[in-house]
Design a protein around this nucleic acid. Sequence first.
DNA 1: TATTTATACTAAATCGTTTTAGCAAATTTT
DNA 2: AAAATTTGCTAAAACGATTTAGTATAAATA
Lengths: 336, 336
Amino acid sequence: MARISLKDIAKAAGVSVTTVSFVINNKAREKRISEQVVEKVNKLIREKNFTPNTIARGLRTGKSTSLGLIVEDIGNHFFGNVAKTIEMTAYKKGYKVLYSSTDNSEKKARELLDMMKNQQVDGYIITPTKGMKSAIAQLKKEKKPFVLFDRYFPDLETNYVVLDNFKGAYDMTEFLIGKGYRKIAFVTILNGMNQMQNRKQGFKKAISDKGKGKVEGLVLELPYEITAEGNLDRLNEFMESHPDVDALFFATNYLGILGIQYTLRKQLSIPDDIALVSFDDHDLFRLQKIRITVVAQPIEKMAAEAIDILMKLMAGEPSVLIQKTISPEILIRDSA
Amino acid sequence: MARISLKDIAKAAGVSVTTVSFVINNKAREKRISEQVVEKVNKLIREKNFTPNTIARGLRTGKSTSLGLIVEDIGNHFFGNVAKTIEMTAYKKGYKVLYSSTDNSEKKARELLDMMKNQQVDGYIITPTKGMKSAIAQLKKEKKPFVLFDRYFPDLETNYVVLDNFKGAYDMTEFLIGKGYRKIAFVTILNGMNQMQNRKQGFKKAISDKGKGKVEGLVLELPYEITAEGNLDRLNEFMESHPDVDALFFATNYLGILGIQYTLRKQLSIPDDIALVSFDDHDLFRLQKIRITVVAQPIEKMAAEAIDILMKLMAGEPSVLIQKTISPEILIRDSA
DNA sequence: TATTTATACTAAATCGTTTTAGCAAATTTT
DNA sequence: AAAATTTGCTAAAACGATTTAGTATAAATA
């Protein structure tokens, strides 16, 4: 029992495939197909449980009703939840989503984009890696609908949705200074993307603006690695050579988790021995005896914004750029 | 500058599209295309950076080189990481993956499956909901390659990869009994799927086998809800009416998280006031002062197994059923 | 009554591949 | 030298829809 096609419906109804096609595409009125024929066709469609072959339709129309979602790591709490919101919204609008994690690999990122282009996805939501810049520029040149997420290229005008990373880092640093911490270390990763640079700059600016020369700001930049093992050692070393650091500020959730690992291993008590704060919220930060103060990203809001913009772009709407910078929330808890 | 097609390459090379098609599909030898022509065509393909249109190819061949992945919630640690392993492996084999979360909604689950069928994905990895049984039976009837994940239907013979849930619950319960706990509550959800039933049965069996009539086993079944709010209250009520429970065993990671919330709210200290153990590992369980003892699912192994089986099925291999039951690991830590 | 216009539909082209069937020239076998 | 085989390629159909350009009949207008 092979799949049933337009042709089968047409034959059964005794009309042409054209007519059936008009009916399924709601063009019956416009194309003046009689009520009776419309009824008959619809009845058959229901009876035979027919749905048009998306692939054939895609070939003819050039549209696939699918979206490409490229994130850093779908297994990460932040991106997993982004993916969830995006898929739910896309689904409601009749779109499928193809996802993939880059794991910050340049090669994979570019291949992915090619794969998706080839698959003729109708739009893209992309968490870019450093090396994707030219591929993104190309996408722009081809006037494909896309929105960058979480980070963007300052020297490439695109649509994007990002957190106000500078502000998040600045405000948190100011908060730490206000709490009396005097030697604050900012632990970040080197991925060459502007969201990390902005966080670092926000930290430094707050130190110089608000520290009044009395607060020392240190920066530890770790390489991006999936296995945290090496990084825990690096953090250890760093702390050994700077034993008087009184507050640690981690630039991402997995770095914050690393920080917690570190304090557990060293049996440091928070916030008495050392303050610990982090970017991104996480169950782990929320559900501790000493709850961790964080710069939270409103994940759902950001994801909803991104998919909303993409839908607008795909509908051929504004050719002006849409760039959203979402305000972070500082959630003050017990750890600093 | 429109997309470049087979035809363009053919024209440029002065050969037929057939020839070019043979070359891209590595049938040059078989179809006796001369070395020179192959060279020339390949050169042009490289120069013009041509890749065949997947949609057209899909229409003709009926294959889409894509996979459908249906999970319960991609934002959940367990499924997010499953998705990651699956996508990575699929990608290496040249497959794209369409994913979606059901959130345990029957309606969405079935619509999803229709959508994916329609999209002509070549294979499926599915975490089924209760109501999907007939849809899965249909999939089987159509001889589509698929493997169920995390749970299956005992009265429907299919390929699957699941944890040995009975054993996990049994062993953990036995461990708790051995530690001297005498009133153990098993907190689970009602989703009507066998993985949860098996966990409950494992718990009960261990109580009766190993409790020697001296250990009481209670079961609290919560409805599946995305917002945990209501469930926290229900847990509270339950504990108020059973104040002498000395160990809590949670059946999933998000229930375990709920449990931690509960102990924090009640300021209970673990394991002195109460023991707390859970199914599934999680950062939150690992990185506490009092680390939580868990029944861990080897996520990567399970996902790798699933995608491996699917690949074999898609290659048209064994028509015998492949059913893998993976052993859980009991990670004994500090919480019991 | 002849002409125009509206109605209700359809034939055929098209999207970009794969694949079957076959053709002409070159080579080998009789 | 004729027949058979091999070599190297191509024409055209097919996949299943959408869409353009019509066509035949009925109704309205002149």
